[in-house]
């Protein structure tokens, strides 16, 4: 069977068959009403707070009243200072490196989970998801115990007669290590779902046609799992660039991320307008990332189709 997500993506010229509609869906008014609770929830839980945040971000900071309703762009202008740009670049760098590491580790893991037996899948999913129930603080302490100056790895090393050699705590690397652990399930789960929808017969067909395991992975699994990998990567990236606790505990004084700045301005400095401006900037980046990834996927697909059509017509078929 064809995976539905693929077919809707690939169908292109031919109109994709509409899913059958239930009786309730037949009257347009009924459909509108059904979406009512969601619209209300969206308004109350997302649009209103976001508008509030946006409004505060252009207000003037006041040390005692928090803010006064005098519109200003100063909060945003402050973001353009080299220090904040540096924090921003570091945040995006940590997010990208984390996402890439998650992909390198997560896609093969997702493939293995999708193709292993039900028992192994159950155990694997449990091991993957269970850490999500532990707070990031506790997880960071766990990493300190393993990676610290006097951590397990160095102690074993000393016990074996070697020197301490692992000095990764309080660096950007440590932040990435902890973030990969946090974000890995977010990448693996959607990827797993999309690989599970790829029929095994496609893999057998590819092998039969002479594709080595690497070629099989690159030419069949990756393109067909791409939507899942992409949504997982976006999720992982979004979570990675929004963290506060992990860089505070794992990173050194020089690995601050945008989340730390927001937290400090909000809680320590009580500068809500500036914190809101940073939050809005972060949200804009997040939206930009989502839109860019969508656009990139669409462009890649268009390009691929175009190329395929050109090759086909050039082949004189």
């Amino acid at each position: 069977m064809r995976p539905t997500s693929i077919s809707s993506r690939v169908e292109g010229g031919a109109p994709a068959p509409r899913p059958p509609r239930g009786a309730a869906g037949d009257a347009p008014s009924a459909r509108v009403w059904l979406s009512g609770p969601y619209v209300v929830l969206l308004l109350v839980a997302l649009v209103v707070p976001l508008a509030h945040l946006g409004a505060i971000s252009i207000f003037t900071h006041h040390p005692r009243l928090m803010f006064v309703a005098e519109p200003t762009l100063e909060n945003y202008a402050r973001l353009l200072q080299p220090y904040y740009l540096e924090v921003l670049v570091r945040t995006l760098r940590i997010g990208l490196v984390t996402t890439l590491c998650c992909m390198v580790l997560g896609v093969p893991l997702a493939y293995w989970l999708a193709r292993c037996g039900p028992t192994a899948l159950g155990i694997g999913l449990f091991l993957l998801v269970m850490p999500m129930m532990v707070s990031t603080v506790v997880r960071a302490f766990g990493w300190m115990i393993i990676l610290g100056r006097n951590g397990v790895i160095n102690q074993i090393s000393v016990g074996l007669g070697f020197e301490r050699w692992l000095f990764v705590m309080n660096t950007e690397t440590a932040v990435v290590i902890a973030l990969v652990q946090i974000c890995l399930p977010l990448l693996v789960l959607p990827t797993l779902a999309s690989i599970e929808r790829i029929p095994r017969s496609l893999e057998e067909a590819a092998a039969n046609l002479g594709a080595s395991p690497v070629q099989l992975f690159r030419r069949v699994i990756l393109p067909l799992a791409a939507p899942g990998i992409a949504s997982g990567a976006v999720l992982a990236f979004l979570v990675a660039i929004g963290v506060v606790v992990t860089p505070a505990l794992m990173g050194g004084r020089g690995s601050r991320m945008i989340g730390n700045e927001i937290y400090d301005q909000l809680i320590t400095a009580l500068n809500w307008p500036f914190a809101s401006a940073m939050a809005i900037a972060l949200i804009a980046i997040v939206l930009g990332a989502v839109i860019a990834s969508r656009a990139a996927a669409a462009a890649a697909e268009r390009f691929r189709r175009e190329a395929a059509r050109r090759r086909a017509s050039a082949g004189g078929a």
Binding site: M1, P3, V10, R311
Partner: peptide
């Protein structure tokens, strides 16, 4: 194959 197992992401020629 019974299911044909054509690659959905490739054209007929591909």
């Amino acid at each position: 194959f019974q299911s044909h197992a054509l690659f959905p992401h490739l054209t007929v020629a591909e």
